[in-house]
Simulated scan of single mutants.
Amino acid sequence: MKENIKEIIRSLSETFEGGPWYGKSVMRKLENVPYIIGYKSCVPESHTVAQIVGHLIAWKKFAVEKLKGNNDYSLEIDTNNDWPNIEVHSQKEWEELKRELVATQGEIYELLNEKEDDSFLEEKVDGKDYNFGYLLKGLVQHDIYHIGQIGLIESQLKKKEMDSGVFKS
């Protein structure tokens, strides 16, 4: 049976591109962020929306590699791989970054759909002290956490940029 896998896919999808009860999903939130603020931050030394998207991609890639059985792949917290320095200077670059995020999410769905049953969710993730069920539920929580950050950056920059025409009423 794959009931738990189906529920994880549903949760991942709802948070990523669906209509969660708490507000906008990751992709609905990113649709409203103009590329021109993608490389700006509210406070010096804080992350930009583009960096947050890169960070989401990094952890989704981590999950993909572990789901593929790549035991050599690792991702260390607070490194350049965890928080890539991404700058977006055009609509094309912004769209490419979002496409990479969507593609990585899609790869997670594909790999989960290939699983025979729920038993793999209890398997330990190589190099970690948690199992795949914990990792995948963590991805949902991770997306929700960063949706909040993106929303905060968007609202703060919207106040600063209102007269510039970046945000349309």
Rank of each mutant, 00 (worst) to 15 (best):
M1A: 15
K2V: 13
N4K: 08
I5C: 01
S13Y: 02
S13A: 12
E14W: 08
E14S: 08
E17G: 04
P20C: 13
W21L: 13
W21M: 05
W21Y: 09
G23M: 01
R28S: 15
R28V: 12
L30S: 03
E31L: 09
N32A: 13
V33L: 10
P34S: 07
Y35Q: 03
I36D: 14
I37M: 11
Y39L: 02
K40E: 12
S41M: 04
C42G: 04
P44E: 06
E45P: 04
E45W: 13
T48S: 08
Q51M: 13
Q51R: 10
Q51A: 10
V53T: 02
V53Q: 00
V53K: 08
I57V: 09
F62L: 15
F62M: 04
F62W: 08
V64Q: 00
E65K: 11
K68I: 12
I77Q: 09
I77C: 05
D78C: 04
D82C: 03
D82H: 03
D82W: 05
W83R: 07
P84N: 08
I86L: 05
H89D: 12
S90T: 11
K92G: 10
W94I: 09
W94N: 04
L97G: 02
K98Q: 12
K98P: 00
R99C: 08
E100R: 14
Q105E: 08
Q105H: 15
E110W: 11
E110H: 11
L111F: 08
L112H: 08
N113L: 06
N113K: 01
E116L: 13
D117H: 11
D118E: 11
S119I: 02
L121E: 08
E123P: 01
D129C: 12
D129F: 07
Y130L: 02
Y130P: 09
G133K: 01
G133C: 00
G133L: 06
G138H: 13
H142S: 13
Y145T: 06
Y145A: 14
H146M: 10
G151R: 01
I153G: 13
E154W: 11
Q156E: 14
L157C: 15
L157V: 06
K158A: 08
K159Q: 14
K160Y: 07
E161V: 09
M162I: 15
D163I: 15
S169P: 10
